[in-house]
Amino acid sequence: ATLSPEGSSWMQKFRESAKEIKARTDSRVKIKYYPGGVMGDDAAVLKKIRIRQLHGGAMTGGSLARFYKDSQVYSMPLKFDSLAQVEHVRSVIDPIIVEGFEEGGFVTFGLAGGGFAYLMSKEPITNPEQMKQHKVWTPSTDEVSNASFEAFDISPIPLPIGDVLAGLQTDLIDTIATSPVAAINLQWHTQLKYVTEVPIIYIYAVLAVDKKAFKKIKAADQKVVREVMTKVFTQLDAETRNDNQKALAALEKQGIEILKPSASDLAMWQEKAQLAEANLMKSAALSPSMIELLNKTLSSYNAKQSATSP
């Protein structure tokens, strides 16, 4: 099951991969995809995996957090400022996340990055103080986002994804943090005027297959599935990166203003993010060793960058 709609590039790739796997395993492994969220949201899909109606689902990293809490490490606010940085960090941490999911009972085939979530709003927001006066939407009430909101001193308004457009129309909410692609696909951009160019968090999705179900197929077939699906996820990962850049440009073309915070504003954002990190450490929503690893990888990358740049 997947939340991606029929006809999207995700579904096309999934269907092609199902054909390839079927051919290469002599029809021993057949994969059926249910697109567009017809099986319910991620929570319902996970329940259906438990009773073995489904064997897996494509979902965002956050939905699987309870099977491996450190999978949410990229949700630490304002950790990154460029995709190059993300790429370096992911080359180190992605394999650990995949390993973690495996221990939690899910086979995954690599992460498909969804790009940064930016702050999008009806009124200009350039520093975190302004954010307090706004009605900020949150998709979930998990520990990691709660810790961040607490640091920013915001009480967010939780709404299911389906209610966000109406919420924006009726001013129930006026600020959201999401990726440009999602904002366009879900028509939220029609209600927004500003994008603040501060990468809040990094989003990704995986295809999670129940490990018990996966181990039931022949070892040779497992290898084929892993190979084909890993190839698909590498492609999807590359594709969504371009999509997000295009989407951001499309937003600008449609008259949405991209705001770049000043250096002093940026410092304020960073200060709040530090606070969020301290909260996360305290609440044990992420393990300290994982936070440490992220920080170490980032600083070694930054050091290398400043050494090589003139």
């Binding site: 006066q133 706004h134 009605k135 009430t141 967010p156 939780p158």
Partner: peptide, 14 residues
């Protein structure tokens, strides 16, 4: 809470 205090109970909708 939403309209007057710009906040809300996180668990309210659930």
């Amino acid at each position: 809470l939403r309209n007057i205090f710009d906040s809300g109970l996180l668990w309210g909708d659930d």
